[in-house]
Amino acid sequence: PGQLDMLKKAQEFFQTCDTEGKGFIAKKDMQRLHNELPLSLEDLEDVFDTLDADGNGFLTPEEFTSGFSHFFFSQNN
């Protein structure tokens, strides 16, 4: 059940970042969140680089979910 909650939230947040529904998140999509979240552009860039495991400049749903699951389960423990 925890796993399902996590996947649901990850998908929801992915769509929050990928407003155009491209299926991936580019760095500029992440920077757009600067207006909505209390994070600096530098922080958002840091978040992007941390989640972009292969460093290709695009965040796939898999990369995003993997990063989110670490956060989610560390919060629940």
């Binding site: 939230k9 929801e12 947040f13 929050t16 909505e36 979240l37 209390p38 994070l39 922080d43 958002l44 840091d46 978040v47 680089d49 941390t50 989640l51 990063g67 989110f68 670490h70 956060f71 989610f72 560390s74 919060q75």
Partner: peptide, 29 residues
């Protein structure tokens, strides 16, 4: 170890990011 420090910082920024998203979702109707 600078690498460990960078890792810990990134984790904090990630936690901050996801927490902000969580509160954004619950904060809006």
């Amino acid at each position: 170890d600078p690498n460990m420090k960078a890792g810990a910082t990134s984790e904090g920024v990630l936690a901050n990011f996801f927490n902000s998203l969580l509160s954004k979702k619950t904060g809006s109707p």
